[in-house]
Nucleic acid binder design. Structure first.
Lengths: 260, 260
DNA sequence: ATTTCCATTTCGCTT
DNA sequence: AAGCGAAGTGGAAAT
């Protein structure tokens, strides 16, 4: 692995180092006073100020201020970056087609400039959201209720995808809507639309599934439900099952963190 | 402004520099081989690899891999960071209350470590999205059609907020749904729900607005509309007006960028 | 503090 | 390439 850095480079040194970094597909970090103009899906302008510029080998281009998680300006992966000197001033540019987007960074002064040839093939293992909740239910249907049998996942309807379809032990159709965090009013409206599809006689979903003249039960599954949503479902006979998405990684070597 | 940087610091130098940077509320950039564990809204683990760590004075804590715009792990502003040595290993930690979130970074090797005392008060000026489109229509209603008069903005209904309400020159009610980019099928469904509200006799919106026994016109306003949405609106008598959000900054000194 | 909705959302997955 | 939905969404404005 190769690292290279320079403090207070002059304009020519800056140009050479950045150019070298770009050609080598290095990850480049620059501490600089710069001004930024963006034109693309929107248009923006940011006057001179001290910022961090991060250029990644996949073409991503980020400019970070001293606040917030999100970059103030950026370009997505596969953008093409270049460095140039115009009127004795140093510029960075990043360009993207489809949609056409352009970022121009005028650099007044570079304080630090580093680049490194890194390749990070490690992938983040993450758990604890909707997909994991769905996996859990498919794996252990009894967590919903004794005798529950899932039949379809991501079942497509006119109004969107139903997270899980299944039957209870009496053969009634069950429509499950999952949320990893909290059931709100919108989730109730959503499942209500799915249910109205099925309740519509003209609709053929029931026949498709070989389920006729049975009840249709709507279930919302999430760790919590908010008060408004709770009132709504009580009026409409929709059920709620409290279930946490499993916060477990697949290769589970994770040690519980000490309290801070 | 104060900058400080070190190449290949040993563990004690690293600790001192980071600790100093944190105390001074500096912006810290670290090029390091590290392993990351997160526990909070979800839970995640990332094995050792070469990454960029960025700690901002507002408490934001970002870990970037060599790909993508988004950090692989992060903590939001107001998180509390600290550096520590445990079993002769260097760790960074970041903690947040409400919701409770914790990030632990084990550092195997630091290649570069920089910090800088920067304060960037420049704010991004941006234009070209939905709000600008709404401003434009309120300012120049004739862009929708001759005689159009907006009456309400962000008008609240059971199904959400209608972007703009108004009347045409015959006094018919007009329901406008704006998009800064492209009308898709979802936007049509949305305006359809608003319209069904108004068309329902039991509904009192019309009386509230003093508009009775008039037509109700649904308009989608955006730069473009996709093919599916176009077919839908033709069947349902919803109209489409093509309008670009104004891509103009308020203090407009912006020079058009040269082509790349 | 909580809710709601927009975003140059980004990102991953499916068609 | 385009569309769809989730996200540790983030962030701002309103309540």
């Amino acid at each position: 692995m190769k690292f290279k850095g320079k403090e207070d480079p002059n304009i020519d040194e800056s140009f050479d180092l950045i150019d070298e970094g770009l050609r080598k597909k290095a990850t480049i970090v620059i501490f600089a006073c710069c001004k930024v103009i963006y034109e693309g899906r929107a248009i923006s302008q940011l006057d001179f100020g001290e910022r961090i510029i991060l250029i990644k080998p996949d073409g991503s281009f980020l400019i970070h201020q001293d606040k917030k998680v999100d970059p103030v300006n950026w370009q997505p992966p596969k953008s093409r970056s270049r460095v140039l000197i115009r009127n004795e001033k140093l510029f960075l540019e990043s360009f993207r087609r489809t949609p056409r987007e352009h970022l121009e960074v005028e650099i007044r002064k570079i304080h630090f400039l580093n680049y490194a040839l890194i390749e990070d093939y490690q992938e983040l293992e993450i758990a604890g959201y909707e997909k994991d909740l769905g996996d859990l239910i498919i794996d252990k249907p009894h967590l919903i209720e004794e005798g529950f049998k899932p039949t379809n996942r991501e079942y497509s309807t006119e109004h969107g995808f139903i997270d899980i379809l299944g039957n209870d032990k009496e053969g009634n159709l069950m429509v499950l809507e999952l949320k990893s965090r909290k059931i709100g009013v919108n989730a109730v409206k959503q499942i209500r639309r799915y249910l109205s599809d099925f309740e519509d006689e003209k609709n053929s979903y029931l026949k498709d599934l070989g389920v006729e003249k049975k009840k249709i039960r709507g279930l919302l599954v999430a760790p919590k439900i908010d008060e408004d949503a709770k009132e709504m479902i009580e009026e409409e006979g929709i059920e709620f099952v409290s279930l946490e998405p499993p916060k477990e990684l697949k290769r589970d070597k994770l040690v519980t963190l000490d309290s801070f």
